[in-house]
Amino acid sequence: MSQKGRVKNLYKTLLYYGKDWPNGYDYFRTRLHKVFLKNKDEVDPEKIEKMIKHGEFVIKEIEALYMLKKYRTMKRRYYND
């Protein structure tokens, strides 16, 4: 996939993850849009590559956050220890 395609893909994937965001999808979407817009004029392929890598890292973080949030809530609700 071209770099441009990968950036688009990253954006769409992040939007998908935003649907479960604790502060709401709209909050997530505006922030995400702003961040992508901020770097829209970047042309250096190496820098873009770095940004994509960072985006993929953020996805992993969000996944971990959701998992932990759910686990902790369940633990608080159903277990006393």
């Binding site: 959701y66 686990y71 369940m74």
Partner: peptide, 9 residues
């Protein structure tokens, strides 16, 4: 039970 594993996304 809760501690069996960590489900994937």
């Amino acid at each position: 039970d809760l501690r069996l594993n960590e489900p994937r996304y």
